[in-house]
């Protein structure tokens, strides 16, 4: 572990509010635009900051509470930046039948993270997911954008080694 520590508390970058305003304004014409807007914010800026919420609410002319309610309802929307690599382990039934719980225990031990947590060095975020639709080739794990099948603890270590 290095001494480099990335703060996980939200520190909005300068100009963030302007970018959020642009995204929301660009997409506001879509039907049911709030979720596409939130996805676009997260895609572009890494997470949905508390400070983004009033900006979006203002563009859509809806209550701040409504936007807040949506952001907090859906698991996909992060409230703080994720680590450089996100590791999501499927914990649904099909993957459980081939050792996904033991795999998750191994991952928690080796990374020092629980589900939903980011390592202290900011390198890695560990998440649980319920189903990638890879149920015949489980356990399934997504590392960054890449989906992996038949992941054993040893294979997970190798994949994470490459990702570092």
């Amino acid at each position: 572990m290095t001494s480099e520590v990335v703060a996980t508390a939200s520190v909005p970058v300068p100009g963030r509010a302007q970018r959020v305003l642009e995204i929301a304004t660009e997409l506001r014409g879509l039907r049911g635009s709030l979720i596409p807007i939130l996805h676009a914010i997260q895609e572009d800026l890494g997470y949905v900051d508390q400070g983004d919420i009033p900006v979006v609410a203002d563009v859509l002319n809806i209550a701040v509470a409504e936007v807040h309610g949506v952001v907090t309802f859906y698991k996909d929307f992060r409230r703080t930046p994720a680590g450089r690599t996100t590791v999501a382990i499927c914990q649904a039934e099909a993957c459980r039948s081939v050792g996904a719980v033991a795999l998750a225990d191994h991952a928690k031990r080796s990374t020092g993270c629980g589900f939903g947590e980011t390592s202290a060095d900011g390198r890695l975020t560990l998440d649980e997911v319920f189903c990638f639709g890879n149920c015949a080739l489980g356990p399934a794990v997504q590392v960054g954008d890449k989906l992996h099948g038949r992941v054993t603890p040893a294979r997970l270590d190798a994949i994470l080694g490459e990702a570092r």
């Binding site: 189903c131 639709g133 149920c135």
Partner: peptide, 12 residues
């Protein structure tokens, strides 16, 4: 929104 574990036909 094929969220059920063990189903992947929609995806495929």
């Amino acid at each position: 929104d094929e969220g059920d574990s063990g189903t992947f036909a929609d995806r495929m």
